[in-house]
Design a protein around this nucleic acid. Sequence first.
DNA 1: GCGATTGCCTGACTATGGTCAGATGAAATA
DNA 2: TATTTCATCTGACCATAGTCAGGCAATCGC
Lengths: 291, 291
Amino acid sequence: MLDAVARLRRFNRAVTREVGALDTSFLGRGRPLGAVRVLVMVRPEGTDVALIRDRLGLDSGLMSRFLRSLEREGLIQTATDPADRRRRIARLTPAGEAEVAAYDAIGQARAARLLARAGSRAAELVAAMDLIATVLNRDQLEIRPADPDSPEVLACWQAYVAELVARVPGATPDLFLLPDPGADRYRPPQGRCLLAWSDDLPVGCVSLRPLDAATAEVKRLWVDAAARGQGLARRLMTAIEDEARAMGLVALKLDTNSALSEAIALYRATGWRVCAPYTGAPADTWMEKLL
Amino acid sequence: MLDAVARLRRFNRAVTREVGALDTSFLGRGRPLGAVRVLVMVRPEGTDVALIRDRLGLDSGLMSRFLRSLEREGLIQTATDPADRRRRIARLTPAGEAEVAAYDAIGQARAARLLARAGSRAAELVAAMDLIATVLNRDQLEIRPADPDSPEVLACWQAYVAELVARVPGATPDLFLLPDPGADRYRPPQGRCLLAWSDDLPVGCVSLRPLDAATAEVKRLWVDAAARGQGLARRLMTAIEDEARAMGLVALKLDTNSALSEAIALYRATGWRVCAPYTGAPADTWMEKLL
DNA sequence: GCGATTGCCTGACTATGGTCAGATGAAATA
DNA sequence: TATTTCATCTGACCATAGTCAGGCAATCGC
């Protein structure tokens, strides 16, 4: 790629202008940008102050001033965290919620305008943004336990099913009930459900379902198209195997289909071995791993 | 598709952080960002001060201060424009050229690091950046005459040939000599060569080659993948037809291949009609238009 | 030639974001 | 229990980018 640098620079210029426009559009409500960035990160239920500071990379002194200025405006309230009384939790007031909603509307309008500018290529544009954000956020990819009934898990499972249907002959959406009425089996203490997050976007999942007292089944390993090629699937598998070990399990199983060749290659490379069939179609490959 | 607004926001966060890192990487050479932005816009041959100010959207007072500070550092010299002695022209000193080269190297290194982070998806990342930059720059797409021997035209022609080879059965790279020894025929007064620019990246081309005193042939219409879907091909055709009219030509011809269906649809929609063959394979469709 | 305009410069002023060194109280650790 | 570590707050300080008004010289339009 000869002129990659020139193209990167062009990207930077275009995006700097856009971010600049974003900044000025976030003004016009009589608040400096820094305070707004903090404000919109406060969830109505309350957000740990340290988390916001960390995400925005702010000095604790500066953060403290932003909080006080928002507090003076009556947009947020802060209280000490009862669990650790050194920490503080910021919570939106009704006035704050209204203000956040106003900024949200601005963002909504801007997004709509941008997508309109992309015309017929809007979906491609969003995919391109996902790829870039995921690459830039690569170091911050985080795997965390999630509730199998949460909308984020549901979204991942839907994407997983869509991919299976597209790639595996014989797989149909009706093989998978979503939301899964048996989701409880993916929840501790019986099972586990892990999500991979890039910033606030879920980009991958994996889960564990009990078979018997000593074994469980790995289910629903999925990685978003934008996040592939970065070893995330391997990290997810390592994480779920660690969970299984911590639960005291001695072996894991999984069923898959030979059309999913990268997945099978990953399993082989990490100690899984083909075993006897224990489920039916559309699975055509069964594997197990001793922990 | 999860909420497009949320994803756009995530993109903004990721990119803001990156641009922030860019800013601080432009520091570390003991100069504030504003001055650097001015410095790297000064061409060694000299640049009109007003042009820089305009491009960067700076107040004349601020601009003046940046110039003084760069001058004090010995990186640039300013002189009054002999043509209009109110205007000033900034010129890089040898020390300035060295400094600009150093900033260039920083950009180079940053680009390399970013591409390395993308790993196996580096090419996809650059394509995604191209798409985004092109969409954001959409309003600034400019069509300008270009020299058929310039590296930018050559790059476009190579991309054009690559696309033909990929799409047209029977087309092989050796059908096209690049650089074209007959490039003179694409140069005024005989012919024309137009490039479409998005910022400083050429994203499309079209050219005109003489047939006889009253007719010419439209050749090498090409639009970069990132810039498609925005009506650029139509704008290029309109521009080249306008050129032909201005040259006093009365008719245009072109040859193409039925595999290039969007192009043929465009020609039909803009008044071109199929005519008798006048060239050989791999062309299988010939069209003309009266001006 | 004359007034208006243009391009640039200068000095005074401001807002914003940011750093740094303690102070304070809470929690973890030995 | 004593010490260390941690999260936050506060006040002092700073650099950068930017605005604004006025001044000066060159140029333009009449």
